[in-house]
């Protein structure tokens, strides 16, 4: 029994590592073809993201939004809901939190932060209510509706930030900076690592407990594995799907809110460099498990923070990290001939 479990654990670890290794190999080909030494670039990236306390903090700070977008996606995927709309929730949550962050003048931190984050989560949850209801009541494919809603959200926030919410005298599309009181407190001085990271880790761990120890968590996994069976034993899958979709949106919105209050301190055009889509890669790579999400988010955070610095210290363009991210996404769902059922959640 225990050896079987150990074997399963080993195969799932290998399942998560193989796509990463292959993606690094693809990245190495790109690097070598453009006249860079892949090994020395990767070594530099590893040092820049994990070498030393300060760099580690930068990596964890970069992992913060990814923890939550990964979590938002995993919640939906494990229930068998193909939600690709977290990106849109992230934008909306970001603009709502930033908006409240500069409007609520004179509010104390203890009030303004919870209110802004709650509002950010709520807008995300409401945003995904429609695709949830459409899927359950009318059988409308949630992939298409959630994907389309991303572009609606991006355009909508882009309009707001270029018009009604544009900071006075600002040429580039940005809202005014939020109040000092609305900024999430830093966990350590002189870093960008803030309370948002602690909230995110806590939520991912809570999700792990929810999935493992609660009836609702068990039901959601069951619905993901076999929705017909669930209906047969009397689980109300329809209402479950709607609730999980909204939950996924709540987390996606919160992710945007935390990013606005914790790091950017305002809302700008192009607020998310694809955090929502990276969340898909993270959920897949982490197999929807809490530990998996944390490890994958930190790996992607490392990639992001290293990418920013390697551009300074070498002539390797930062976009190599985007190539790696896309390759991981593609390879994470490919059945590569070992183990069983890669990406079976879908």
């Amino acid at each position: 029994m225990t050896s079987a479990m150990a074997q399963m654990r080993a195969s799932s670890l290998a399942g998560a590592l193989i796509p990463v290794v292959l993606a690094l190999a693809i990245g190495a080909i790109v690097l070598a073809a453009t006249g860079h030494d892949p090994l020395s670039v990767y070594r530099l990236m590893a040092v820049e993201s994990f070498g030393g306390e300060k760099r580690l903090q930068a990596t964890l700070s970069a992992a913060t939004p990814l923890l939550l977008t990964g979590l938002a996606t995993a919640v939906a995927f494990r229930t068998g809901i193909f939600n690709v709309g977290v990106e849109g929730c992230f934008y909306l949550g970001g603009i709502v939190a930033a908006g409240l962050g500069f409007w609520l003048v004179g509010w104390p931190s203890t009030l303004i932060i919870p209110v802004a984050l709650l509002a950010a989560a709520l807008i995300g949850g409401l945003w995904l209510l429609l695709p949830g209801v459409l899927k359950v009541r009318l059988g409308v494919d949630e992939v298409v509706t959630t994907l389309m809603l991303n572009f609606v959200a991006i355009n909508l926030t882009s309009w707001l930030v270029n018009g009604p919410l544009l900071a006075r005298g600002s040429a580039n599309s940005a809202t005014p900076a939020i109040q000092k009181a609305a900024e999430l407190p830093r966990l350590l001085p002189l870093t960008t690592l803030n309370l948002g990271f602690a909230i995110s880790i806590l939520l991912v761990l809570l999700y792990g407990c929810w999935g493992r120890f609660t009836v609702a968590g068990f039901r959601s996994r069951l619905a993901g594995l076999n929705a017909r069976f669930c209906r047969a034993v009397g689980i109300d899958v329809s209402s479950l799907v709607i609730r999980i979709m909204v939950l996924s949106g709540l987390i996606g919105g919160l992710a945007g809110g935390i990013h606005a209050l914790g790091l950017v301190h305002r809302f700008v055009a192009g607020f998310s460099p694809g955090y929502g889509f990276a969340g898909i890669a993270i959920a897949l790579l982490g197999r929807n498990s809490a530990i998996g999400i944390i490890l994958a988010a930190i790996a992607f955070g490392a990639l992001a923070s290293a990418g920013a610095t390697i551009q300074l210290f070498s002539d390797v363009p930062i976009e190599i990290t985007q190539v790696l991210q896309g390759a991981v996404m593609i390879l994470a769902v490919a059945k590569l001939g070992f183990g069983r059922g890669r990406g079976t959640a879908l």
Binding site: F277, P317, E319, G326, V328, M329, I330, V333
Partner: peptide, 21 residues
């Protein structure tokens, strides 16, 4: 046997990065 949606999104991300790179 990879999921078409994730692969499609992955290509969008990777190719956009590769082009800029």
């Amino acid at each position: 046997e990879a999921n078409e949606i994730v692969v499609g999104l992955g290509f969008s991300v990777a190719v956009a990065g590769l082009v800029r790179y």
